[in-house]
Design a protein around this nucleic acid. Structure first.
Lengths: 207, 207
DNA sequence: AACTAATTCAAACGGGCGTTTCAATCGTGA
DNA sequence: TCACGATTGAAACGCCCGTTTGAATTAGTT
């Protein structure tokens, strides 16, 4: 009876979508239960309270996105710096524009960044620091000893910022540009652009 | 009696801070009134309802930030592309790390991006599109005819993304890096970095 | 000083929220 | 088949929200 159609799992899946859309505080347990086809008391019975359900949603969302689109998922055998950046950008872009469950993590993260709950500390430690290190060590290795630590950090932020903007800028892209989603090809071109652009930036910085 | 200490003005000032901190829905009129030293009914008397107060806050915040840190505020006489990017980045960074009223606009924008209200359409049209055009036309002029429109757009996003990350990444910078704010000098170095990095990126793209 | 309009005040109103309650129902092992 | 723990169900509780009310107070005009 450990199927994925238990009430508990239906709650997590329904809650993921609603939390991602509205954020923790704006989402109501009533609408979550209705979307899951469960009774209003189901959240408290299966999770204790709303906040524990939120924790469960986070772990679920991160596991899915990290296994479907790992940041080192496109690395060739002997990767150069550009390969690291491209692999990172490709993974992040695919996550952001995934319309399936892998797309929920970036949306949850966006919500959490503007109105942090206690969950953010844990997420930063478990999910984001490792990804940040993945990029940071690649950049540091490529620039070794030539530039101060602050410059390395700024270069990392330049790379991460380019990717993250497609997540945080969602609402604006619809309004300023008029494009809601990106095709598979566009995603590939953006990831390639970010890698090329960043390599040019780093070259310009280090001379 | 058109001073800046009327109840109406105190409400706008108090509300700006609270809306910027918590977003529209999470902020309560009770705490706004308390912070303004006004009665609970003051919002409805002076503005009609919470949403109209929110509109007033937006206009107030944008006027302040746009006049204190205009995106063309650091342009030399005959600006090259790098000057445009630097002027833009410097203005945005100064806004983001301003601890005074000029810092409220980026915070409000962050809130609005994750949970858009009807106000976002108006903001996008009045405040953000012009700034986007400022950058876009400079980039387009520098790359004229050499690259497709999609490439120009991606370069713009690379520049804007680098700046915006310092706004959206606030909560993470504290948790992953451990730095909360930036000194005046650091702000200048980041703005210079973004301009240099972006020029390198654009050079790499256009060849 | 007297009158009028503007503003402030404490209290209350509906409505929606997360949570609790406890009876009804289901699933499973004896 | 029966009994018992696990799960579901409908209803209610207590709380906080934005807003409204109507009286009290203040400010401006003659």
């Amino acid at each position: 009876m450990n199927e994925s159609h238990t009430t508990k799992n239906r709650l997590i899946q329904a809650a993921s979508v609603i939390f991602a859309e509205k954020g923790y505080r704006e989402a109501t347990v009533a609408e979550i239960c209705e979307a899951a086809g469960a009774n209003i008391a189901a959240v408290n019975y299966h999770f204790g309270d709303k906040e524990s359900l939120y924790d469960a949603v986070w772990h679920h969302a991160f596991e899915i996105t990290a296994s479907e689109y790992p940041v080192d998922g496109s690395l060739p055998e002997h990767p150069a710096l550009e390969d690291y950046i491209h692999s990172y950008a490709r993974a992040i872009m695919n996550r952001i524009f995934s319309e399936g469950p892998a797309g929920l993590f970036p949306k949850l993260l966006h919500q959490e960044m503007s109105n942090p709950t206690l969950a953010l500390d844990q997420i930063a430690e478990e999910a984001l620091k490792p990804q940040s290190r993945f990029l940071g060590e690649a950049v540091r290795a490529a620039l070794e000893q030539k530039v101060p630590e602050e410059t390395i950090r700024m270069c990392m932020h330049s790379i991460i910022g380019q990717c993250a903007f497609y997540n945080f800028g969602r609402a604006l892209r619809e309004r300023v540009i008029g494009k809601k989603t990106l095709s598979k090809d566009e995603i590939e071109r953006v990831a390639r652009h970010i890698a090329t652009f960043s390599m040019g930036g780093i070259k310009e910085i280090q001379q």
